[in-house]
Computed example of a mutant assay.
Amino acid sequence: MTKKTLTVRPLEERTEAPPLQKRGRGWNIGEKRLDAIHEMARAMKREPTPAHALLAEKFAAQELGKYRLHRQVVIGSAIVDFACQPLKVAVSIDEGGDPAITARRDKSLEAVGIQLLRFPAADVLADPDAVVTTVIAAMKARWEERRARGRARPAPSARQGYSR
């Protein structure tokens, strides 16, 4: 029996990400693989790294209103350390790993409109308050973009209302 290994094709050989399938199911991912990804995210949530635990504690202390950062969120086939899905902001803590896989994941997240903020674990441990400030500033900027888009829509005219 041969063992399958994961390989990453060079960026030049890859095509665009396929369109999203049904809600919450990502990029045409098999059910078994998606279940395995969710189980991996649960395991990562149960056993956080020191940088992840510190940043989670700092985010929990912030007053973010209805826009919360959730830990170990599955987006497509990627697991991000923190995400605010209504604002489409995600945070990833770099703790090593294959840069080719990381670049591919970042590209696929950005293709669907997710703003990914990446921080080295050493920076998180050295100055977590600066990381929190950067993330909150990005969330506020996305919120302002959403608000500006909402205002840009034309207001309904008086004729479009109900007649009595």
Score class of each variant (00 low, 15 high):
A155I: 08
A17T: 03
H52W: 10
R147I: 12
Y67H: 14
E16K: 00
V91M: 11
E57N: 11
W27A: 10
E95C: 01
A61D: 10
D81V: 06
W27S: 04
R33N: 12
A90S: 11
K4W: 00
P48S: 01
A121D: 05
K3C: 08
L55H: 06
T133R: 13
V112D: 04
P154L: 14
N28T: 05
R151A: 13
S108V: 04
V80I: 09
R164E: 07
R147A: 15
R146A: 15
A43Y: 09
E144D: 14
A41D: 07
R164A: 11
Q85T: 13
I79F: 05
V135K: 02
R46K: 15
A141Q: 12
Y162S: 14
I101R: 14
M1I: 13
M44T: 07
V73E: 05
N28R: 04
M44Q: 05
I101S: 15
Q21K: 11
L109W: 03
K32I: 05
P48Q: 02
E110P: 02
A158F: 12
V124H: 01
P86L: 09
L87V: 08
P19R: 03
E57W: 02
A155L: 08
T7S: 13
D35E: 15
P156Y: 05
I37E: 03
Q21S: 15
R14N: 01
R151P: 01
L20C: 03
P50Y: 09
A137T: 15
K22L: 14
W143Y: 13
G97L: 09
R153K: 14
S157H: 02
T5V: 13
I93P: 02
E145S: 07
Q72R: 04
H52A: 15
V91I: 15
V8A: 01
N28L: 03
A121Y: 06
S77V: 02
A138Q: 13
E95Q: 10
A78K: 00
L54V: 11
E95R: 10
M139Y: 00
R146Q: 15
L116F: 06
E57Y: 11
E12D: 14
T7H: 13
